[in-house]
Design a protein around this nucleic acid. Sequence first.
DNA 1: GTGAGTGATTGCGGATTGCAACTGGTTGAT
DNA 2: ATCAACCAGTTGCAATCCGCAATCACTCAC
Lengths: 168, 168
Amino acid sequence: MREEPRSGCAINAAVEVLGDPWTLIVLRDVIFGGRRHFRDLLTRNDEGIASNVLASRLRKLVEGGLLTRDDAVRGQRATYTLTEAGIRTLPVMVALGAWGLRHRPTTPALAVRARLLAEGAPHLVDELMDELREIHLGVTRENPKSPTASERLRQAYEAAITAGDGRP
Amino acid sequence: MREEPRSGCAINAAVEVLGDPWTLIVLRDVIFGGRRHFRDLLTRNDEGIASNVLASRLRKLVEGGLLTRDDAVRGQRATYTLTEAGIRTLPVMVALGAWGLRHRPTTPALAVRARLLAEGAPHLVDELMDELREIHLGVTRENPKSPTASERLRQAYEAAITAGDGRP
DNA sequence: GTGAGTGATTGCGGATTGCAACTGGTTGAT
DNA sequence: ATCAACCAGTTGCAATCCGCAATCACTCAC
């Protein structure tokens, strides 16, 4: 299944892995949504991904070294875990979110996180990557201060939906 | 041709426009390669894009408001121009390039620009966006100091290929 | 008018997608 | 022990998309 890259360009290399309409969506749900299981990714997905597409994308992400999958037997809960390469797609997500926020119609509630990450970058992004490393790779954070990055994102999200928007 | 977004998520909104294996490649050639014409984009493309795919992507990019196309008659050189939305995909390109550089095999010469942009961000990125605004939108830069961002990128590229690599 | 150059479109076979139904296994309550 | 519920996918099918080569319609220089 190993194919030659179309060219030696770094952007092309990234596009060959991430450049399709579903891969980034699956990755987003793992990174921001905390989904780690097939059924979770399938049923709690806003865009309504099909099961065969999800299976195909998870396989490619594992092959590409962005996720790992534990060898759970069929019928048991297999868990997908982010690798360092997977965690490092976070800046790409943030850049995409910032662009979508500015140039496309978005739901206010869902846009809060994107706005926070876009405005708080790169500090918040680094903290969130450290947090993902702790969750997925078992690497303890250097500075485990009380409000984690994701906790601050969650609080901002809740504040936004109760306030009706979140835009001052 | 206007379709409902799959969800109100900002990342999804961006993925629906940029998330396919060719759109970002075309945009990359316009932004970094200075290509403005169909034939240019077709024949000077490293990945070997097909003419029907190029035509389809240019149409979608114009529909999506990332490019404009002058009303040149058939048979004349039609020129594609970046809009503000198109120019603002640059941070996405940089993030993708940085990821590809770190986690995929790349040609050293082609990787120089990616490395420079990744390490020099966000200062260099802002300057390059201003330069694109000048070229495509006719907006004169505030501070037209002698070595432009693209010129510095070009110099670094040439220095790299003559030195054999570019990595110190 | 001929030929080179322009921006595309068309037709073809094969691959990929989205959708729905289904498979084979485990878990947990009765 | 049985049965329903849950889990991770697989299969079949029609529709779409892809890469490839050929072709079209048009302009300009000579």
